[in-house]
C-alpha cells in the first residue's frame, strides 16, 4: 500500500519537474519561460520530497520528517529568486513577444 503511495507521488513529482523544464525550452520569451520553473518545479519537488518522507518513514526506524525542511525552503525561495530574475530581465530591457499586452505598464528604471 505505501509502495503505491510512494510510486504515485514520485511519478507526479517527476512529471511536474519535467513539465517545468519543457516550459523552459518551449516558451518564446523570457517572461513566459519564468512561469514553468517557478511553479511547476516547486510543486514537483514538494511531491518528490513527500514521497521520500513516506519512504524513509516506512523503511527505516522512526519517522523521518526532515524532508519537509527542503520543501519549505524551496517554497519560500522560489518566488524570491523568480522576482530577482524578472527584475534583472526588466533592467536589461529584454524583448517580450509582440502579442504581450500592457507593455507600457513597465516603467523605466533608475
Amino acid at each position: 500500500m505505501t509502495e503505491w503511495i510512494i510510486s504515485i507521488l514520485l511519478l507526479i513529482g517527476g512529471s511536474f519537474v519535467l513539465v517545468g523544464s519543457i516550459g523552459l525550452v518551449k516558451m518564446p520569451d523570457f517572461f513566459m519561460r519564468l512561469h514553468g520553473p517557478t511553479k511547476a518545479t516547486t510543486l514537483g519537488m514538494a511531491s518528490l520530497l513527500t514521497a521520500a518522507m513516506v519512504f524513509f518513514s516506512t523503511t527505516q526506524a522512526g519517522v523521518s520528517v526532515k524532508e519537509i525542511l527542503i520543501s519549505l525552503f524551496l517554497l519560500l525561495t522560489a518566488p524570491i529568486s523568480g522576482y530577482m530574475m524578472i527584475k534583472a530581465a526588466i533592467h536589461h530591457k529584454l524583448e517580450s513577444i509582440e502579442r504581450t499586452k500592457g507593455i507600457d505598464n513597465i516603467e523605466d528604471d533608475v
Binding site: V17, S21, L24, F30, T41, M45, L48, E67, M85, A88
Partner: peptide, 21 residues
C-alpha cells in the same frame, strides 16, 4: 540572454536536488 541562462542554472540546481534525493 543572460537572465535565461541564470533561470536555466537555477532550475538545474533544483533538479539536482531531486536527483540526489
Amino acid at each position: 540572454s543572460v537572465p535565461d541562462r541564470i533561470l536555466a542554472l537555477d532550475t538545474m540546481y533544483i533538479n539536482t536536488i531531486a536527483l540526489i534525493i
